[in-house]
Amino acid sequence: MHVGIFGGSFNPPHTAHLIVAEHIREAGALDRILWIPAARPPHKPATGLVAPHHRLAMTRLAVAGNPAFDVSDLELHRDGPSYTVDTVRILQDEQPGTTFTLILGGDSFRDFATWHRPDEIIRRVPLLVYDRPGTRYDDVPERFRTRACFVDAPLLEISGSDIRTRIREGRSIRYLVPEPVRRYIETHGLYR
């Protein structure tokens, strides 16, 4: 089985996440996508980050109904920052017969050299990078570029920060997030 590791804050998970994940699953010939909400993303400020249990619940609601999508709470059980290298080690130890690929957006790939133990990550798993057509990565070290497969992703201007702003301003987020996620946000009064 070939599984794509799709980590992120998912604060909240939105329609663009779903579209990109399905596109990447097909383009990368992946059997499954494993969505992993980070407890404490090391490269993002904690400002505006709702509690991990809410992000986990919303991610589960977002992917429900797609049999190729699973959600893991693996990073929510660890203390400290959610380092990808630790997640990859654990997944490989727990599922030795599974081939894993790490899914990254182009912005994350550009910063990959600053990640915790990036050389160990690329020794363990290849990278599947999605971004806009024509994006260049000349500043990314060659040792990382040679371990990456690049896939053009659909151009979608939806972001978690915009969704959070819209909620604070009392504006609609309908169709920006799956309806069960919208209801969950409303029920729990998130991002106000």
Rank of each mutant, 00 (worst) to 15 (best):
M1F: 04
M1R: 11
H2N: 11
V3P: 00
F6Y: 15
G7H: 10
S9F: 09
N11D: 15
P13S: 13
H14Q: 07
L18P: 09
V20H: 11
A21T: 05
E22R: 14
H23C: 10
H23N: 13
A27G: 10
A27W: 08
G28D: 09
A29Q: 14
R32K: 14
P37L: 10
P37N: 10
A38L: 05
P42K: 05
K44D: 11
K44V: 10
P45F: 05
L49F: 13
L49G: 05
V50C: 07
A51G: 12
H53K: 02
H53T: 14
H53V: 08
L56C: 06
A57G: 07
A57H: 09
A57T: 03
T59H: 03
A64I: 09
G65W: 04
N66H: 11
P67E: 15
A68N: 10
A68W: 04
F69S: 02
L74N: 07
L74C: 05
E75D: 11
H77G: 08
H77A: 08
R78K: 09
R78H: 14
D79I: 07
G80P: 12
P81Y: 13
T84F: 06
V85C: 08
D86Q: 13
T87G: 07
V88S: 01
I90A: 14
I90T: 15
E94V: 07
Q95P: 00
P96Y: 00
T98S: 00
I103C: 06
L104R: 05
G105K: 04
F112Y: 02
I121E: 02
I122S: 00
P126K: 14
L127C: 05
D131M: 10
R132K: 02
G134N: 04
R143G: 06
R143S: 11
A148D: 01
F150L: 05
F150C: 06
A153F: 06
L156M: 12
L156W: 07
E157V: 03
I158E: 00
I158V: 14
G160C: 02
D162F: 13
T165G: 02
R166C: 05
E169I: 03
I173H: 10
I173C: 11
I173W: 13
L176S: 14
V181R: 13
Y184I: 02
Y184N: 07
I185K: 13
I185Q: 09
E186R: 12
T187V: 09
G189V: 08
